[in-house]
């Protein structure tokens, strides 16, 4: 299958620090990849490079043969490359519903006057956005708290609201940065289920950074390990984890020791 997202010898340097070095990867449509590695391995930098929050120093990133390099983060998002953050960033004083509604930004919206004067195109778009939001909230089980303000909700619901906001318009590439961080075991399991359900519905190419190896094992058919900004192993999570280089990076265990 031809790759949807291609990284070709991508490097990111911050001054003298090489955060990501010569990373070449290809993601086929509908793939679900776990990105693992110790702290400082360059996982988040790589996600930033794909989503456009960090400029790459050299190499190419292309989606569907479109070069992403000259595009801003917002422009990439409109092409369908969306990401979540390690710390949840929501509209704190608004409801879950309104927070997810913001995600409809990636659908075509009427112009300024159309929106301000509530002209017919605006009404059609609003009806479309409300319906999409309601569906997503239902799929993720957020409907019962749709009209609660997010600043009064527990962390797990806030995390799920953020993910709903990314999914309300079906992304092409979904990038998640430690979505399970801060969740307890039961919440993690539920999160895995929602991601899997969405994924199986089709078409979504997902890359997940995750420290919870068990979660990666359960969720991702394929995984890539990074260390010191370089790919040290790739394959199924079990294969990757049994690689000596990965053992060394994670546990400081020498091969054969």
């Amino acid at each position: 299958m031809t790759a949807l997202l291609k990284l070709d010898r991508v490097s990111v340097r911050f001054g003298g620090l090489a955060a990501v070095t010569d990373v070449t990867m290809a993601f086929s449509p509908g793939s679900l990849t776990g990105l693992i590695g110790p702290n400082g391995a360059g996982k988040t930098t790589l996600l930033n490079a794909i989503s456009g929050f960090t400029a790459i120093t050299s190499g190419h990133i292309a989606m569907n043969e479109i070069d992403l390099s000259p595009l801003s983060a917002a422009e990439r998002a409109r092409l369908g490359v969306v990401r979540g953050f390690q710390t949840v960033r929501l509209l704190e004083r608004e409801t879950v519903f309104d927070n997810v509604l913001v995600g409809c930004e990636r659908l075509p919206q009427p112009g300024l006057l159309g929106q301000l004067l509530a002209l017919p195109p605006e009404r059609r778009c609003r009806a479309r956005d409300l319906a999409a939001t309601e569906t997503t909230l239902r799929d993720l089980g957020l409907l019962p708290i749709a009209h609660r303000r997010v600043d009064e909700l527990p962390f797990a619901s806030r995390r799920l609201t953020e993910i709903a906001r990314l999914l309300v318009v079906r992304p092409t590439v979904l990038l998640l940065d430690e979505p399970a961080a801060g969740l307890d075991t039961r919440d993690r399991r539920a999160l895995v289920e929602s991601i899997r359900t969405y994924h199986e519905a089709g078409g979504l190419t997902t890359i997940i950074i995750e420290h919870d190896i068990e979660l990666v094992r359960r969720l991702c058919p394929y995984s890539v390990a990074l260390d010191m900004g370089r790919i040290i192993a790739s394959g199924s999570p079990n294969e990757v984890l049994s690689e000596p280089a990965v053992q060394q990076a994670y546990f400081g265990v020498r091969s054969g020791a």
Binding site: A77, R78, R106
Partner: peptide
Amino acid sequence: LASASLGV
């Protein structure tokens, strides 16, 4: 940051 990630 979050706005940009949503395409705003």
